[in-house]
């Protein structure tokens, strides 16, 4: 995996792609909870997504309420917010 992400947007797009992959297989697993291939896919992509999210939060601020990394500032409220062009 390429972990050299100093570009916030590139890392964000990678997270969105992995998040989508995971969500897609989750929807499938809702109906087929014993499918071994789908479960393997889920496990693989879950680990990748967790790594990417950790890398993002370390450099660019929290993705969720529970991801604030700073001891001196509540970065959760820092813009841009997801609906703004600059955030995408």
């Amino acid at each position: 995996m390429n972990t050299n992400f100093n570009d916030r947007t590139a890392l964000l797009h990678k997270i969105q792609a992995e998040d989508f992959a995971l969500y897609e297989v989750a929807l499938y697993l809702d109906a087929y909870p014993k499918n071994a291939k789908a479960l393997r896919y889920y496990k693989e992509h879950k680990q990748l997504l967790e790594q990417l999210k950790r890398a993002y939060e370390d450099s660019f601020g929290p993705l969720t309420l529970y991801g604030n990394q700073s001891d001196t500032s509540w970065q959760w409220v820092d813009g841009p917010w997801p609906w703004e062009k600059e955030a995408n």
Binding site: L65, W76, V77, D78, G79, W81
Partner: peptide, 9 residues
């Protein structure tokens, strides 16, 4: 931004 945070949460 702070108010956006409050409304979101």
């Amino acid at each position: 931004d702070k108010v956006r945070g409050i409304l979101t949460d």
